[in-house]
Structures are given as C-alpha cells and as structure tokens.
Design a protein around this nucleic acid. Structure first.
Ligand SMILES: NC(=O)c1ccc[n+]([C@@H]2O[C@H](COP(=O)([O-])OP(=O)(O)OC[C@H]3O[C@@H](n4cnc5c(N)ncnc54)[C@H](O)[C@@H]3O)[C@@H](O)[C@H]2O)c1
Ligand SMILES: NC(=O)c1ccc[n+]([C@@H]2O[C@H](COP(=O)([O-])OP(=O)(O)OC[C@H]3O[C@@H](n4cnc5c(N)ncnc54)[C@H](O)[C@@H]3O)[C@@H](O)[C@H]2O)c1
Lengths: 205, 205
DNA sequence: CAAGAATTGTTCAGAAATTCACAATTAAGA
DNA sequence: TCTTAATTGTGAATTTCTGAACAATTCTTG
C-alpha cells in the first residue's frame, strides 16, 4: 500500500468530512477548486492529495462525491476505532456525552476513573470502571486507543498503565508531555496552546 | 520584529509549557537536549527554534529556565488572551469549568447561548448571555477570540455574528468548515478527526 | 592559568511539502 | 464531427522545514 504522509492523511480526513456534508446537501460532483475553497487549501493541494489514493476524478467534470468519499474511507477508516477514556471529569464527561463520534466511526467502549462516585455508573451507554480493571477490560474488549482526560499529575501514570495494557495510541488532553516507549503514538491536544497559537497567528501575521 | 514560522511558534508554546513545569519542579537550567527529550523533538530543532528569539543560552550551561520562559513569553503572549464562548453545552460547559486557562494567560470573559435556561446564569464566574447581546458585550468588554462550541448547523451563523462583532479569531469545535472574510483566522479543532488521525498514523506507520 | 568537556548558535545540505504550470482528457455545443 | 472550455493528474520549480556538523564559548578541574 502506498505510503502517504501524515499531513496528507489528516487533510484527507477533512476531505471526508466535507464530502459527507456535500452528500447531505445533495451534491453529486465536486471540483478540486470547490473543495479547496470550502476548506481553505489550494486546488493543487487537493488534487495532489487525492492522487495519492488513485485516479478517481474525471477531467472537465471533477470528482463524484460518493465515489471519492468511498475511496478515501477505504484507505483511511476501514474499521470503527474503539477508544477508552481515562478521567471522567468536566472534559471526559463532555466527550462521553457527545453522540457524534459514532457517525465518524469512533466508538467509546469504556471509561475509567478513580472516583468511587463515578465508578459503576454508565454515561451515555459507556460504563465507568476502576483503574485497576484496565488490563482485564482491554483484554476482554477491543480497544484501539486511550484518551487521557485526567489531571496532569496523573497523566504519566495513566499513560504507563495504558501502555502496559498493550495499547499503542494515546490522545493526551493533559497539559504535560508524557513519555512512552518507541512504537506508541501520542497525540497531544492542549486547548490552552490551541487558543494561544491562534492568537499568536493573529498577532504575527 | 523578526518573522517566525507558525510551526516554530506552536513549538515555542510547548517550550513555555515545559519550562513552567520545570520551574515548578525546581529546575534552574536546562539544555536543548533535555528539552528535546521531554517533548520528543531533536536538540537541533530546539536550539534553532530558540535562536529565533535571541541568544538566550550559554554554551556549556544551557538555558536558564526562568529567563528562557520570559523571553518566549515576551514574544508570544505579552497580554492575557480574552475569549468568548458560544454554545454552553457539554463541551462548552467543560471549557467554562476548567480553571487551568488563567495560568496560561487565557481568560474567558463571556459565554453565549440560545437556551433560556442557561442565559443569565454564571458558570465558574463567567456570565452567560443571549446571542443578541454579542455586539454590546464585545463593545463593552475586551474580547480577542471567539470559541464555537455549538451544534454544527449553527456554526456558520455564529461565525458570521462573531465576525460581525469585530473579532478576528475563531476556534471552531464544530465539525464543519466555516467561511470567513480575509483577515479573520479560524482554527478548527475536530476531535473526531484528531482521534482518527492518531489511528491512521498508527496503521500507516 | 591551561586543558578539557559540554553546550550553544549557526551554517549548510538534504528532505519534505507546497505551488506552479501544462499536457492529457473529457463534455458540451456549434 | 470538430472546436472550445474546463478540469484532472503530475513532473518540475520553489519554498519551508529538519537534521547533521562544527566552530565558538564557557565552566570545571587540575
Ligand atoms: N476541561 C477543559 O476544558 C480542559 C481544557 C484544557 C485542558 N484540560 C485538561 O484535561 C484534563 C481533564 O480536565 P477536566 O477539566 O476534565 O478535569 P476534572 O478535574 O474535571 O476531571 C478529572 C477527572 O480525572 C479523574 N482522575 C483523577 N486522577 C485520576 C487517575 N489517577 N486515574 C484516573 N482518573 C483520575 C478525577 O476523578 C476526575 O473525574 C486535565 O489534564 C486538564 O488540564 C481540560
Ligand atoms: N462534546 C464533545 O466531546 C464534542 C466532540 C467533538 C465535537 N464536538 C462539537 O462541539 C460542538 C458542541 O458539542 P456539545 O456536545 O457541547 O453539544 P451540546 O448539544 O451539548 O451543546 C450545544 C449548545 O449550543 C447551544 N446552541 C444551539 N444553537 C445555538 C446558537 N445558534 N447559538 C448559540 N448557542 C447555540 C445549545 O443551546 C447548547 O447549549 C458541536 O458542534 C459538536 O459537534 C463536541
């Protein structure tokens, strides 16, 4: 299978998102220029990205929305991604209560916390377990990635537990870098930094 | 003032985050190698990034944590960033209830919703207003950026209102691209795409 | 004080990503 | 059918980003 750069990969997910919306609006074909305008890329970028996945467009016409979506999804998201959440606080609860993930082939299968008041509850269909159950749950259930939404003091410990249970992917919302063995992927999402970087972009533009 | 690339800018915010943690742990100096290891960059990258902001380090010693932090902050985040939130639902409430933003020079100054049950309340010190009040609030209060945490159907309308009220920066959590006039900056944060892209990186590595 | 060890700042080369530009292709219309 | 206009796919040019290397600098130790 052709190697595709991470950047192209991420943009491709945005293409899928946009194609879904176009489908919903009843669009049937779309040009690289139109896609580019919607998402703020250049049309050349769009065409080059798509060319990674094959020749799916027709000159003078553009891309069939449904077909392009299919091609991208076949490459990117064949299966549903199963996620486990660690830390059922403000942010964790919001994530659990969000019902839009399943439309995007993401399924939250379990949540974990240390708070006795939360353990045993079920939020939006997702059971909350004690941290000590992590190995058993991961063994019994199909889990692809772990999501850390616990206080930063706990994030490294939780990351270690996640790695120890065999998972290879972590999304970390805590504002601290966690260290993991080679072969484990970490995506840091620090909302403070996102907000600040927008502001910096504004100022230094 | 020297032009700094957006990538360097974002990494610099991560440097600040790490320096804060080191300060808290009592560290007084740090080398490019140490910083690099903590964050998973290369030491050359760290040095090159920092060199954008002046000659702060001392050969054979490294960087004084407090001094480096100061230099970066002077360049990046002189003032507190004032933000207004649109949509006080699951995600919006989590953001309002998070008390870590103020440590990062971010201040939530107002929230807006269309839900009568929410309007007039105060969450974690932040008042919730009706959407129609946006112009007045933005005029009366110092606001730098708007944060959209409302359903995607409403996101374009809200973006238009934000732009109309004079703001130049938008963080958009809704899974839809919004279009804005030139000169307005939008940062899309789509959690579904973040999760999927981690998984794609794992699979295609 | 001189030698040695460690770390910076910076240059340079290479890699990666983006944009340009255009031949090839297709549909529509005369 | 032939011409025209539009749009793709892609190689080449350009820009941006990264990594390697090393002279210059400064502490430390003998
Ligand atoms: N809420 C936000 O908008 C926001 C914004 C930016 C960053 N964050 C980060 O996201 C993380 C969560 O934020 P929050 O506001 O939801 O915090 P929170 O305090 O509301 O919730 C944290 C949850 O984690 C649980 N927890 C504590 N220690 C744990 C452990 N060792 N193992 C498992 N669970 C544990 C707590 O019981 C609690 O339920 C924090 O690291 C925070 O810095 C949150
Ligand atoms: N919660 C999550 O974890 C999560 C994850 C991914 C994406 N998102 C996105 O973030 C956004 C918010 O998600 P949520 O789960 O908080 O939704 P929610 O339904 O819990 O909250 C939406 C809030 O927006 C308000 N609202 C509706 N229309 C509005 C309008 N025109 N103007 C102002 N306010 C309006 C509603 O009254 C409600 O309070 C959505 O676009 C969602 O797709 C959320």
């Amino acid at each position: 299978m052709r190697k595709v750069s991470p950047k192209t990969l991420t943009r491709a997910l945005f293409y899928i998102r946009t194609l879904n919306r176009l489908l919903h609006l009843g669009g049937s074909v779309v040009s690289s220029k139109e896609l580019a305008d919607i998402m703020g890329f250049s049309d050349a970028q769009v065409r080059k990205d798509i060319s990674n996945f094959g020749k799916v467009g027709k000159p003078r016409i553009g891309y069939k929305v449904a077909e392009l979506k299919q091609v991208l999804e076949d490459f990117l998201v064949q299966d549903v991604v199963h996620a486990a959440l660690f830390g059922v606080g403000n942010l964790g609860s919001a994530i659990l209560r969000y019902s839009g993930f399943h439309q995007n082939k993401i399924k939250l299968v379990a949540a974990f916390d240390i708070d006795k008041n939360k353990i045993g509850k079920t939020i939006n269909g997702v059971p909350v377990y004690a941290m000590k159950d992590i190995r058993e749950i991961v063994r019994r259930t199909h889990v692809d990635i772990g999501i850390i939404a616990a206080p930063e003091e706990a994030s490294q410990d939780i990351a270690d537990l996640i790695v120890g249970s065999g998972l290879k992917g972590i999304v970390n919302f805590a504002p601290t870098s966690v260290s993991v063995p080679k072969g484990v992927f970490v995506k840091d999402i620090d909302l403070s930094i996102e907000f600040l970087s927008l502001f910096c972009d504004m100022q230094h533009s």
